[in-house]
């Protein structure tokens, strides 16, 4: 029996759902191996008998709360895809602002129609079996995950930081140009795509491990002449790190 797959979206741009459709080169192969039974962005039919439920988006409204609990109940395995689902993502930026302010500048005089709660990742509300981080999630990693599940092997996220991929790619380290890149503290798996185009890593795949973050705190205070608030702002952008100060 083919595994029955569903793809759901909470508060997000649904770019990670779109990334699945962008796998057009192997979409037919995937469809040969699995049965997609619920996918708002890709089909109209709906079923709630689900083996693996993929969810993009953060829990950011009371409606999201209800939906994620329903998705969890219906899915034997629940997978968070993309930074919003794994870390809260860009949605968490509102968590640092005054609620009445952002409600007003986003919804204007209609704010009362749109209830909102502090944004959080899926894991803040329900048990999540697997996480595929990134903004957007990495299509190739999604494919690898599907293959691992289909062959009954164990899934591991990369435990290395982005620097490893820059070195394997032969990319010039942005620190050599004096740019505070978040590569040393961010989980690899994106093939270091931003630095390969000369842009600093902004941590969309989350912090690789606490030790790296601790080293960052020490280095940024002792070795680099930088404004810690700027680095914190970068770390918060995709919800990778939400504390007020570096360790």
């Amino acid at each position: 029996m083919k595994p029955r797959i569903a793809i759901f979206s909470l508060t997000s741009c649904e770019g990670c759902s779109l990334a699945i459709l962008e796998l057009e080169d192997c979409l037919l192969d995937i469809l040969g191996a699995v049965e997609i039974v619920n996918f708002r962005e890709g089909m109209t039919e709906r079923s709630w008998d689900i083996d693996i439920g993929f969810v993009d988006g953060a829990v950011s409204t009371p409606e999201d709360m209800k939906e994620i609990e329903h998705f969890r109940e219906c899915s034997k395995v629940l997978v968070a895809i993309g930074a919003c689902a794994t870390h809260g993502g860009l949605n968490t930026l509102k968590n640092y602002q005054d609620e009445s302010d952002y409600r007003k500048y986003v919804y204007g005089d209609q704010a009362a129609r749109f209830p909102t709660i502090p944004a959080q990742p899926l894991s803040g509300v329900v048990d999540v079996d697997y996480q595929l981080p990134g903004c957007p999630m990495v299509k190739e990693e999604f494919l690898e995950f599907v293959k691992v599940v289909l062959t009954g092997r164990t899934w591991h996220l990369p435990e290395d930081p982005v620097c490893v991929e820059c070195k394997r790619n032969g990319t010039l380290c942005l620190y050599e140009k004096g740019i505070m890149c978040l590569g040393p503290v961010t989980r690899a798996g994106c093939n270091a795509i931003c630095p390969s185009y000369g842009a600093k890593c902004e941590g969309c795949r989350g912090v690789v491990h606490d030790e790296a973050l601790k080293a960052a705190g020490i280095n940024l205070r002792e070795q680099y002449d930088v404004d810690l608030q700027d680095v914190l702002a970068d770390l918060r952008m995709f919800g990778a790190y939400q504390e007020k100060t570096l360790p």
Partner: peptide, 13 residues
């Protein structure tokens, strides 16, 4: 080593 990110840049370069 308290400063080391364990990023492996030394090894891989």
């Amino acid at each position: 080593a308290r400063r080391c990110y364990s990023c492996g840049s030394c090894n891989l370069s």
